[in-house]
Design a protein around this nucleic acid. Structure first.
Lengths: 222, 222, 222, 222
DNA sequence: AATGAATGAGTATTCATTCAT
DNA sequence: TATGAATGAATACTCATTCAT
């Protein structure tokens, strides 16, 4: 079968036979994401998921080991995508030199992060409102994600200090603080759905501005 | 208990039959706090709580409507204490005039907040890792608490802008950001137990400094 | 309570308060025995047992860890009783001297064994038709029981050989053979309910006679 | 198999597309025997059997009505072979005249039985540890097999009594006893794998000797 | 004949809550 | 008040069987 397929130049399978266009596993994962986002882990029954996916109970267990398994795959998939995007975005950030460039880059980076989180809305809800205790592996993964983000921010800060354009601050604390801000604002915006009166770009600019200059009015320059 | 009873010459309590002065409700609430903090809401069984309190299963229902009820009272009690402390602390903050006084006040306020949160550690865990979906009333309460804190911060910022010592910033966003920072750092410190390398005072100073001046090195003053 | 009870000379509890005459655990065990005997382990549902006992599903789990647990207790209880009875019966057997006494003792012992097994009918069915694979602990216990019985028989045979009234035979094999006979006849009689046309005493006599003299007609004594 | 195909000059099978001469049904039955012997009926999943046979789940149902069906065919096949062998063996037994010939014949017969059971080891396990309750038809068949064996033994005994070389014994009981011995020893040897310290011939001789003379030392012949 | 994805009935077990004592 | 035995609704998961391809 696969041989004949390999050498045939035409008639490339109409519908791939085995899977006539549908991927039950993906369907179930999508259904699960939606239901989990609506009801949370504990209130979600496997029967809810299969009902949403339009398949029988048993089908679920062909693709997942159990309720915890779907949840784990959901979270881990999202975490991976977040880290991927993060790496891509920060790769760009490294190549700047001037302060204004840095600012613009910060803004662009933050906008990128926000856009990505926006696209992960439903899983984000589950990640940020991490109940804990569902699966130690999930807790570890989320803690790991947070640590990576914080550490990346810390290194950025340290690089700025070394480069001389950031003041001597406690990078550990400030990195945590910055990540805290972003987590919180993302939660408000994407999970609770509050738009905070501005679009994503303006939001990012305001955050970056705050991060860079603080809240005090600058002393009048003569 | 039995000792004091044996040797007491007078009838100390009207009803010293079963409860010689102890408040079963408070005992149960304390036991519940401890167990919830350890295992989270869903993993905690009513049987765990009564076992920790040393009473019978049925006794629990003499003091609480159910598992959700204890949890609610736990959270709401803590929220009330937080708001109380917050009000007391901010009352003081209003009476300052100079910028340096304001800074010191901010630090003192934040230290006060941290100390209080420290004393609420066990419940804080439950509040910050808001599971959601347990009880709409709890969600509303926690959302309300957050809103109050944000609104207070927003008003403070607005007052600073009006008074002329804060720059024109989006108070809505920055208030959220500030609360996010504090939430996150509190979570790291009190729930996850990371000391971040500094004591509470230093932590507060670093935060306030960041909040006020941002991360950029100030331009050299001539 | 226990104090007042200890010292009160009269009014010894009408119905012992806590347990007004009923022992749910025992009731459930009895119900389980009956249902298991009828349907076997795998065909017996916990719901059958609780229905037979007239209690709710949950009640079952107050007294047993699960379906396997009741079964184990059933079997192990019966095994213990069998061994107890066996020990008592064989204690008597040791004290004989003449061959005829030995014969009578053998018969009496066998009758005792049969009577006991008769009283354990329902569990016997489960023991003899040991499905295996339900619980390794049960398999081990039943294997152990069989080994004890065989070993006891083997020692009896050896004693007879040493004493000179038994011929030199392979005690290991014959002990197994004897236990096999008894197992099989017990199964036929008590599990399958065939009376084999004789009462228990006659059955025992026939067995003992066979065991002692075999099937051959003795050579005519001149 | 594949060898014969490779070198065959003619088209041996009409449909050598998928099944080049193999009997899927037999393959499945063999696989089932192996798995059932290892795990027992209830612990064996159809998926285990098809995995062992290397075919798809659905293929199983082309050859068997269901899980119970394979089991039944397994047992019934074995029972038939046992009865066949039994008949052949006993046919020979009928033609003897002297007592010593009879003894030798008994031994030879028993050895034959043991050898056959040895070759049926895996199914024997399932037959002897008759779970009961799987399928009434199986229970009936096994009961029938046992009855046939017992009845045959009973007739042998009766013939011996009639011929005058066996003493007057209760043929019903002794036949059961003898079958019980053989069942039990076969179980120990072939199912539990204990060799009892002797080879099959010696085992048979010991059994026959016991059966004929019992355990008592014969009175000294003058 | 062969496949294997899909099915869904069947069941053990948990645990919040009640209530007679 | 306090007890704790009893309740039973609720649910995850298994696996024999089917059937479209």
């Amino acid at each position: 079968m696969s041989v004949s397929k390999r050498f045939s130049l035409v008639d490339q399978e109409k519908s791939d036979q085995e899977t006539p266009g549908v991927d039950r596993g993906a369907e179930l994962l999508a259904a699960a994401t939606s239901v989990f986002a609506q009801k949370g882990f504990h209130e979600t029954k496997v029967s809810d998921i299969v009902a949403a996916a339009g398949v029988a109970q048993g089908t679920f267990y062909l693709y997942f080991k159990g309720k915890g398994d779907v949840f784990f795959r959901l979270i881990s998939g999202c975490c991976e995508r977040i880290l991927d995007q993060m790496h891509q975005a920060s790769a760009i950030q490294q190549q700047v030199t001037t302060a204004e460039e840095a600012r613009q880059n910060n803004v662009a980076f933050l906008v990128g992060v926000f856009r990505m989180l926006e696209s992960e809305q439903s899983v984000l809800k589950l990640i940020l409102a991490d109940p804990g205790g569902i699966d130690p592996a999930i807790d570890k993964m989320l803690a790991g994600l947070r640590e990576i983000l914080v550490e990346q921010e810390r290194q950025n800060l340290q690089a700025g200090i070394d480069a001389g354009y950031l003041r001597a601050l406690n990078t550990t604390i400030i990195a945590e603080a910055v990540v805290g801000m972003v987590y919180h604002l993302s939660f408000e915006r994407f999970v609770r759905g509050r738009d905070l009166g501005v679009d994503l770009e303006k939001l990012a600019e305001e955050i970056v501005s705050f991060e860079r200059h603080g809240i005090l009015k600058p002393p009048p320059v003569k």
